[in-house]
């Protein structure tokens, strides 16, 4: 039984610590001169951004390099094989992705702007690249959750903490309610921790439920920096790192990583 899917070519890839990605087509893959990466458009929207990479022979295999300097807009990029320039494209299935260079990425210091790329496998088995592009970033190193509060340890990349720094919790939706928390700054000007009190947050959430997105304002008047966990090999951590839910007088509170690996707090139920 040979189905279309089995005929679809596979591509593996290797990423370096600098973000350079080498795509690799095994021997026997269909003819093709180029790889095409395209930013997956929102439903119903036309495709806008593509990158085309030349395939070079490497022994019996062929490879194409996405240079560390090539800027990928934040989003999900699908990978295709082009038989020849301008020809019809063929989606690539995911082969081996050597992402070991990304493990422990949070221990390195990232320059601004942060361009983070994580090759991943889509739910249906295709190769894609998750990209984040941020002027600055607050990497969540860990969270301690108690029944009454949560304490987040984080580290700034591409910014440093100044006088007047605050942590901002913004309620999603119209009205944009914002609460602030004082961070506790480390000596290095980059590391910080902050505690969110569940009782206050539950009281501050309108009846029903809400989601609070967490950011850091590193100095008075400075732009907000979203807190998240981007600097390792996990493209989707929502179901991998799951924090406990605290039940607070009939209200359930739970920090979680969003589909974009940003940190938010979900509040559910009537206070």
């Amino acid at each position: 039984m040979n189905t279309d899917r089995e005929k679809q070519p596979h591509a593996g890839c290797t990423i370096g610590t600098d973000g350079r990605i080498t795509f690799d087509l095994p021997p026997g893959a269909p003819e093709g001169q180029q790889l095409l990466l395209r930013l997956r458009p929102k439903k119903g929207q036309p495709e806008k951004t593509v990158h085309v990479l030349d395939l070079e022979p490497a022994g019996e295999r062929r490879s194409a390099v996405l240079d560390a300097r090539a800027v990928l807009t934040e989003g999900r990029w699908d990978v295709y094989l082009l038989r020849e320039p301008g020809s019809e494209r063929q989606r690539l299935r995911a082969g081996l992705r050597d992402l070991r260079a990304l493990v422990g990425g949070h221990l390195r210091r990232w320059p601004a702007p942060l361009a983070v790329r994580t090759p991943y496998v889509t739910k249906d088995g295709h190769l894609a690249v998750r990209a984040w592009l941020r002027t600055a970033h607050a990497e969540a190193d860990g969270i301690d959750v108690t029944g009454r509060s949560m304490t987040v340890r984080a580290c700034l990349h591409g910014a440093s903490l100044q006088e007047g720094a605050v942590v901002s919790l913004r309620l999603r939706g119209a009205g944009a309610t914002v609460r602030t928390v004082e961070p506790c700054a480390g000596d290095d000007g980059r590391s910080l921790s902050f505690t969110v009190d569940y009782a206050e947050l539950a009281a501050g959430t309108p009846p029903g439920s809400g989601v609070w997105d967490i950011s850091v304002r590193p100095a008075a008047q400075a732009p907000l920096i979203r807190v998240g966990r981007l600097l390792d090999d996990l493209a989707d951590r929502k179901d991998v790192v799951v924090y406990p839910t605290a039940d607070f007088g009939g209200v359930a509170l739970r920090p979680y990583y969003t589909v974009d690996n940003d940190l938010s707090i979900e509040v559910k139920g009537q206070p």
Partner: peptide
Amino acid sequence: VTDLGLYDRVLLMGAVTLMEAEWVK
């Protein structure tokens, strides 16, 4: 994992078809 407070240290990764790339990490 939750009861032991290891949510940031023990990761339940789900099923993966190409384990080789995961072992080498």
